[in-house]
């Protein structure tokens, strides 16, 4: 364009420039139009109702911040690193929720990474076939999968029957209604959400980079550590973010598989909604949302948005 406008003088040149700008603006408008239906849909059917629900925290039943009071009212104190921290059930539940989400995320990563790696290193057609096995759990409702875990973990479940039959135990292990069962059930549900972004990023890694590293003298372990691992980090970040944030909102699995102290925030929210304490339910939901956004912000701040959602391609 520079060469084109080089010889144009005065008004001619300005006219030309203006026309190009006009064209560019029209181009931009076209993208806006393409996005419009989805944006309108989201605002009308998601944004508005969610906002309407969450704002209840500030006026239901009466205007003010009283819905947040139970969250900051200390019912007891907990000694932690020599400090006594004010505590109540709601803070405990938020803490338990974060703990569960963190463990689920870390274990899902440890289990999902090798699977995604294997999927990304076979041919695309075979990977598509194997991907079906990753996705099969998606076809079954969360409830049914939770029940499947009950069949496995129960006092007379398959695992205990096997242990007793093999003579490895004389008393059945307590597996069901424990934190362990919650982890198992949630990790089972979350694994595909970890594997898919990992796989997408790993597929995008140029295999020639790995060959080049080998050619330059790197044994397979060094190729993985120095090349593959760093290039797969955007997938790790995206997978962890997805799993962590989805885990924060879990409800059915902990309710069915957990013990008495495995209470997650969404169970509390449900409780408040059914008690018709919508304002307090909204306050809990709002805090959970802020927590999720905060963690998202932290992730993108530390890793950079581009690394979380960007690709590994050069």
């Amino acid at each position: 364009m520079a060469a084109l406008t080089h010889d144009l003088q005065g008004a001619d040149r300005e006219g030309q420039v203006a026309r190009f700008q006009h064209l560019r603006r029209r181009e931009q408008w076209r993208y806006v139009l393409l996005l419009l239906p989805a944006v309108v849909f989201l605002i009308a059917f998601y944004g508005y109702p969610v906002a309407a629900m969450l704002t209840r925290a500030f006026y239901d039943p009466v205007p003010g911040l009283q819905n947040f009071e139970p969250l900051v009212t200390a019912r007891s104190t907990v000694e932690f690193l020599g400090l006594s921290i004010p505590m109540n059930a709601y803070i405990r539940v938020f803490w338990i929720t974060l703990q569960i989400a963190a463990v689920v995320t870390i274990v899902s990563l440890l289990l999902g990474y090798p699977v995604a790696y294997a999927l990304s290193s076979v041919s695309a057609s075979r990977a598509n076939l194997l991907m079906i096995f990753v996705l099969i759990p998606f076809w079954t409702s969360i409830l049914v999968r939770s029940y499947a875990w009950m069949v496995l973990l129960g006092k007379e479940g398959i695992i205990n029957e096997a242990l007793l039959a093999a003579g490895l135990r004389t008393e059945p292990l307590v597996l069901l209604n424990t934190r362990l069962a919650v982890y198992l059930g949630m990790i089972h549900i979350m694994l595909p959400f970890m594997i898919l972004p990992l796989y997408a990023v790993m597929r995008g890694i140029d295999r020639n980079l790995l060959r080049a590293a080998g050619n330059l003298g790197a044994p397979p372990s060094a190729v993985f550590r120095r090349i593959f691992l760093p290039l797969s980090l955007p997938g790790v970040a995206a997978g962890c973010l997805l799993v962590f944030i989805l885990s924060l909102g879990f409800y059915i699995t902990p309710a069915l598989l957990g013990g008495q102290k495995d209470v997650m925030v969404s169970m509390l929210i449900q409780q408040q909604i059914s008690l018709l304490k919508w304002g307090f339910g909204a306050a809990l939901a709002l805090v959970l949302l802020i927590l999720a956004l905060g963690i998202y912000a932290l992730f993108t701040r530390v890793l950079g948005v581009e690394r979380v959602f960007g690709s590994a391609r050069t």
Binding site: P70, S76, A89, R92, V93, L268
Partner: peptide, 8 residues
């Protein structure tokens, strides 16, 4: 409310 505290 009391139950929620008690259970944890």
């Amino acid at each position: 409310e009391r139950w929620n505290e008690w259970i944890l």
